[in-house]
Amino acid sequence: MLFRSLAAAAALLAVCTPVAAQDLDLRAQVAAYVQPSNVARAIQAAAQLRAAGFDPVMEDFMGGRRDRPLAGRNIVATIGDGPREILLTAHYDAVELEPGRLSHGVVDNAASVVAVIEAAKILRGKALNHRIRIILFDQEELGLIGARKWIEAHGLTNVAAVVNSDVAGYGDTMMYGQNNGPQSAFVTRAVQELCAERAMQCVGYPVYPPSDDRAFSAAGAPVVSLGFQDQVGAHQMWLAFNGGEANGLAEGFVPQVFRLIHSAEDTMEHVDPATVALAGEVYAAVVERLDRQLAGVD
C-alpha cells in the first residue's frame, strides 16, 4: 500500500513540477519589472528577449510632455520574414505615481510584456507567412507616445494587422475591444473564432479603454487590444463602459481593475502566472490565425 502511495505521489509530482516551475519562472519574470525607473524596465525587457533567444533593438525617440521632454525607447524584435508583417505589442512603462516614484506596474503592464514574449517563443517555431514584429512600447502612460513615434518612424504600409496586450495579470476571461474601426473587423472576428473554438470565456467591448491600439486605429491600421480579468470583473467593467446610466452598478462603484492599476496597489500579489501563460498561448494563436487568414490559407 505504501509503495502504491509513493508511486502515486511520484507520478503526481512528475506531472505538477514542470507547471510549478513554469509558474515560478513567469512570476519571477513579471516581478523583474519592479524597478525604480522606466529605463531600468526597458533594460529588463531587452534582457528577457535576449534570454528567450531574440536579438532586440532599442529604438530611441524624444517624447514626454510639452513641459517636460523625456527620452524614450521602444524595444523591437522580429520573427521570420515576408513582404508584410503582423505586430504583437505591449507597453512596458509604468505610471509615475508622484515625481520620482513609479507604480510597480505589474498588472499594468509587465504581465502583458511577459505574455507577449511567451507568445513570441511559441511563434518562432511556426511556419509563418508574415514577418512577426514584437514591439514593447515606452511612454504609453504619457499618452501612447511610444506607439505614435513608432508609426511616425516606420509607417504602416507593410502592417497587415496589430495585436496589442494591456492588463493581462490575472483571471481567465479574455477581454477584447471592438471600437477600432471597420478596418479592424477581420481581426476582431479572428479573436471571436478562437474564443468559440476553445470555449474560452471572452467578453467583447463595443467601448474599450484606450491603449496603444488607439494610435494604430487612428492611423487606419487593423488592430485589436486584448486583456484578461476574472469573469465578474470583466463584466463589471463592461457595464461601467457600455451599460449607460442604467448599468445596474451601485452609484460610485469602480471596477476592481481600476482601483488597482495606476496605483500603489498594482503589486505582485495580484499577478497569476497561469494567466500570463494562458495569455501568451492565446496571443500566439491569434497571430497564427491572422497569419493564415491574411495569406488566404485558412
Score class of each variant (00 low, 15 high):
residue 116 V to H: 14
residue 37 S to A: 06
residue 180 N to Q: 14
residue 93 D to W: 10
residue 13 L to W: 12
residue 152 E to H: 09
residue 148 R to H: 07
residue 53 G to S: 06
residue 44 Q to K: 05
residue 195 C to H: 09
residue 94 A to C: 04
residue 80 G to A: 08
residue 253 F to H: 05
residue 82 G to D: 06
residue 5 S to M: 11
residue 230 D to W: 00
residue 179 N to A: 09
residue 297 V to M: 01
residue 208 Y to T: 08
residue 2 L to Q: 10
residue 13 L to G: 14
residue 123 L to A: 11
residue 292 R to Q: 12
residue 142 L to E: 09
residue 234 A to L: 11
residue 48 Q to S: 08
residue 198 R to S: 15
residue 202 C to A: 14
residue 206 P to L: 12
residue 119 A to L: 10
residue 18 P to C: 09
residue 223 V to N: 07
residue 102 L to A: 01
residue 269 E to Y: 14
residue 47 A to K: 14
residue 257 V to C: 02
residue 94 A to Q: 11
residue 1 M to T: 12
residue 18 P to L: 14
residue 160 A to V: 01
residue 223 V to F: 10
residue 149 K to M: 10
residue 253 F to W: 03
residue 81 D to I: 03
residue 202 C to H: 03
residue 36 P to C: 07
residue 23 D to M: 12
residue 133 R to K: 12
residue 9 A to L: 15
residue 181 G to A: 07
residue 292 R to D: 14
residue 193 E to T: 11
residue 279 A to R: 00
residue 93 D to M: 08
residue 69 P to K: 02
residue 36 P to W: 14
residue 103 S to F: 04
residue 195 C to A: 15
residue 243 G to I: 08
residue 214 R to S: 08
residue 279 A to Y: 03
residue 12 L to T: 13
residue 2 L to K: 05
residue 59 E to C: 07
residue 170 Y to Q: 01
residue 150 W to N: 05
residue 151 I to V: 09
